[in-house]
């Protein structure tokens, strides 16, 4: 079974890309789909009705969706395997743009929208840097010059990333993504799958429910405004 992890900001077109992947492989391969979102998601119902494939969803609620994804991934792999899936697609809502849900032995796909502004790739870090493929959607809507600059900035964050530009609703240009999926090896050993990067620290006192503002009311990683250009970098 092949594992594809699709991430990206809301409304970038993750599900439109997923739809095109399913449409392409439908009939030749068994596909299972898992959506991880925060409060509401409809993609699982839509895709199940449209393509008659097994789908599942998980709401992370107050937990980061990527943390949730990691917690449930082992179970989800077992679920997809029991269904004799050839391709298992996990779509994760990327919210803080700092996370990166990609694991080893998978194809990590980040979906970015060309209309989100030319500096957008620079604001995302690991969500792009640790992905294998960047699918840039809605390129039909922006000028040539913005398209070129967006691509450059994406390359700046991840020089080796494979960039696929598309109008995902029509599926133009996605042949290169399909090719990467075809070339993707099956998962070798579930037990040895790990996260590719370290997610942002999630254990400050705000995380555990303290609501007071100001550093004086908290402990753990503490910084004042002065000199707080970058609050915390993992070791």
């Amino acid at each position: 079974m092949k594992l594809i992890i699709i991430a990206g900001p809301p409304s970038a077109g993750k599900t439109a890309v997923t739809r095109q992947i399913i449409r392409h492989f439908q009939g030749q391969q068994n596909i299972a789909f898992l959506k991880i979102d925060v409060v509401r998601a409809f993609e699982d119902d839509e895709l199940r009705q449209e393509f008659n494939i097994p789908t599942k969803k998980v709401y992370s609620g107050d937990l980061c969706p990527d943390h949730t994804g990691i917690l449930v991934l082992q179970d989800a792999l077992t679920w997809a395997k029991e269904l004799e899936s050839d391709i298992f697609i996990v779509e994760s809502a990327g919210l803080c743009l700092r996370c990166s849900p990609y694991v080893t032995q998978s194809l990590g796909v980040v979906v970015l929208s060309a209309v989100s502004g030319m500096n957008f790739p620079l604001k995302m870090g690991p969500l792009i840097a640790l992905a294998d493929v960047a699918v840039i959607t809605k390129t039909d809507l922006v000028s040539q010059s913005e398209k070129e600059v967006f691509r450059e900035k994406t390359k700046e964050v991840a020089p080796a990333i494979d960039i696929v530009e598309t109008n995902a609703v029509q599926g133009t240009g996605l042949r290169y993504l399909i090719r990467s999926i075809e070339a993707l090896p099956d998962i070798e050993k579930d037990q040895s799958i790990t996260l590719r990067g370290i997610p942002p620290l999630g254990v400050c006192t705000i995380c555990v429910g303290k609501r007071e503002i100001g550093w004086q009311n908290h402990f753990g990683v503490i910084r004042k405004l002065d000199g707080a250009d970058e609050i915390f970098r993992g070791d």
């Binding site: 922006v142 000028s143 913005e146 070129e148």
Partner: peptide, 17 residues
């Protein structure tokens, strides 16, 4: 796109910057 010999300009193409 910087090497592509084709420029496509549609009704939807915008400069957003």
């Amino acid at each position: 796109p910087s090497k592509k010999p084709i420029a496509l300009i549609t009704q939807n193409t915008k400069c957003l910057a």
